[in-house]
Each structure stands twice: as C-alpha cells, then as structure tokens.
C-alpha cells in the first residue's frame, strides 16, 4: 500500500476529518487535483464540490465542501471550508427543495433576482445530491 498522508478538514464549527488517508482528491478552483504523499507544497482555493479520499482502511469516502481553501504539504493536506458535510449528513430533502427553488428563480429571470446567488445555491444543491447518489 502507498504511504499515508494526513488529512484535516476544518470548518468554523468543528473539525470534520482528522485522519491518515491514502489519497485526497479535491475540487480546486483551477481544476480538480489529487494529492498523494510527497506532493509539493501547494495552496489553492476550492470550488463548491465534493472532496474524495481513501481512508487508511482502503474505503472511499466523499465529503461535500462548500468552497474554501486547501493547503497541501508533502505529508499533510489541510482543507479550510466554510462548511462541509459527510455523505451521511447530507439532507436530501433540503437539497432537493433548494434545487427546485434555485431552478425556479433562474428560470423566472425576474429583474430583482440575484442570479449569482441562485446559481451558487443550485450548484450546492446539485453537488450534495450527486454525492448522495454515489453508491
């Protein structure tokens, strides 16, 4: 097995993940990137999306990331996210509702709707649902 690196995902509310992992794949703002042990030091902002990693037991895990920053060191990855959720913590009902609401707002295109906000909301909802769908 490959050598492990340490993954930390912290949000203002709490530390979500703090464990040894084999690989981390994160949604960087310039494109998705993967990090293994020995990766060069690297700093990037993150998009809304899913963070994927394989934990020490070889199990693949998904976390929803609501944007943020990632710092990659040769033996450690730190993700600073405004909020993050494990797959099991994602509220499907809420995400579905949010998706419908955002789609409606985008479709209406009324002058006073904040399109940027609606788009971000839609993105968030879709990513949440996508993560939930992965078997």
């Amino acid at each position: 097995m490959a050598e492990k690196l340490f993954l930390e995902v912290v949000t203002p509310q709490k530390a979500i993940v703090s464990e040894e992992v084999e690989i981390v794949v994160a949604p960087g703002s310039e494109g998705e990137f993967g990090a293994l042990k020995g990766h060069t030091t690297f700093l990037t902002s993150l998009k809304v999306g899913s963070l994927r990693y394989i934990d020490a037991g070889g199990k693949e895990r998904y976390i929803f990331i609501n944007g943020g920053f990632a710092e990659v060191l040769p033996d450690k990855v730190t993700i600073l996210a405004e909020s993050a959720e494990y797959r099991k913590d994602i509220d499907v009902e809420r995400a579905t509702k949010a998706k419908v609401r955002a789609e409606k707002r985008l479709a209406n295109k009324a002058a006073d709707t904040d399109l940027v906000r609606a788009e971000v909301a839609l993105k968030r909802a879709m990513h949440r649902l996508r993560i939930k769908d992965i078997k």
Partner: peptide, 20 residues
C-alpha cells in the same frame, strides 16, 4: 516556511482570503 505553489496566483488567492 514552505514555499507554496499558488493556484490561482498568490495575489488572487490573497484577494479571496482577505474577505474571509
């Protein structure tokens, strides 16, 4: 202090981090 590679540029990154 490890030298980071920054993506996007360090200035752009700083611009995003300051409001945060």
């Amino acid at each position: 202090l490890p030298e980071h590679i920054c993506e996007p540029s360090s200035d752009a990154l700083l611009g995003q981090m300051l409001p945060k």
